[in-house]
Write a protein that binds this DNA or RNA. Structure first.
Lengths: 149, 149
DNA sequence: GGAATATAATTAGGCTACCTAATTATTAGG
DNA sequence: CCTAATAATTAGGTAGCCTAATTATATTCC
């Protein structure tokens, strides 16, 4: 209670607020929003791992957003010719999403820039502290997650 | 380039994404949004430190949002009777914002709950790791901030 | 001292990134 | 084979921001 002035709490709070404003999530590139790039990245990575293309529901699970959110983003990517829908022949309710050559090129370029930036960060923090940070953030997530239930 | 698969980068990225979804910033309390509570908190803290009430521009600087954003939030808080505007007699362009008794009570209750939650977090992480986390987040912010210029 | 300029706040309108509820198409279970 | 479940979509809404334009007041400087 008197602990309301606890300096560690204060520091942590300030850091959280600042971190939220950190532009680590970039602004528009090539006319596409960060949320659109995230979907592109998921489709791209999925294609490198599996034989079948990603379903809307799979993308939605990976990004932890609802399916309507994914549908909307896919609609825009489709309009821009970055992505194609095909009906899954095994389950005609499902839709498989595939990158077009244009979409693939865009995604690869964005990924390159993105990973360079993050390699720079790991370099800046040092390998050890980077690992520590990831671990601590996971613990924070777990703490709040468990509070909510 | 081959470093694109650097596991530390991957871990860090996953942590960042997860952290962004962490509900550390709460949902509506008493019908007021997190952004509204942040403004209340700033006004409350300002009142404890200075003789004069907060101006819109001061609130805007502290929260790092534009003045129109603050104006809108103040409008809502005003409608709810949590806050009062008075014209600064020294500079009649400026508006001083003051908590009403109702606003003050609400803010105090919210602050209490809020700080208890964060004391719990510090307890969960340990004092030392909490400090480390704050420090690392600040470094991350600095890295991205400098990249942007 | 008055015109030009700067500053404080507000209004109007727009945007991103989400959400929920309802609908449509298809598949699976009793 | 009919009911219930599942996949995706459409429609509409919300929070939390933003920019540009406007209004009122202050400051500067010839």
């Amino acid at each position: 209670m008197a602990d309301r002035e606890n300096p560690t709490v204060q520091k942590l709070l300030r850091s959280f607020i600042q971190f939220r404003k950190t532009g680590w999530h970039d602004k528009k590139i090539n006319g596409y929003n960060p949320s659109e790039y995230k979907v592109l990245a998921v489709i791209y990575e999925g294609a490198n791992k599996k034989e079948l293309e990603m379903k809307v529901s799979e993308i939605s699970q990976i990004l932890e957003v609802t399916p309507p959110t994914v549908t909307q983003i896919i609609n825009n990517l489709d309009k821009g010719g970055l992505v194609e829908r095909t009906i899954d022949p095994e389950d005609r309710r499902a839709v498989r999403i595939k990158l077009t050559p244009k979409g693939k090129e865009l995604t690869e370029n964005a990924r390159k820039a993105f990973f360079e930036k993050y390699l720079g960060l790991v370099d800046y923090l040092g390998e050890e502290d980077s690992e520590k940070l990831a671990e601590l953030l996971n613990k924070v997530h777990k703490y709040f997650y468990e509070l909510k239930r």
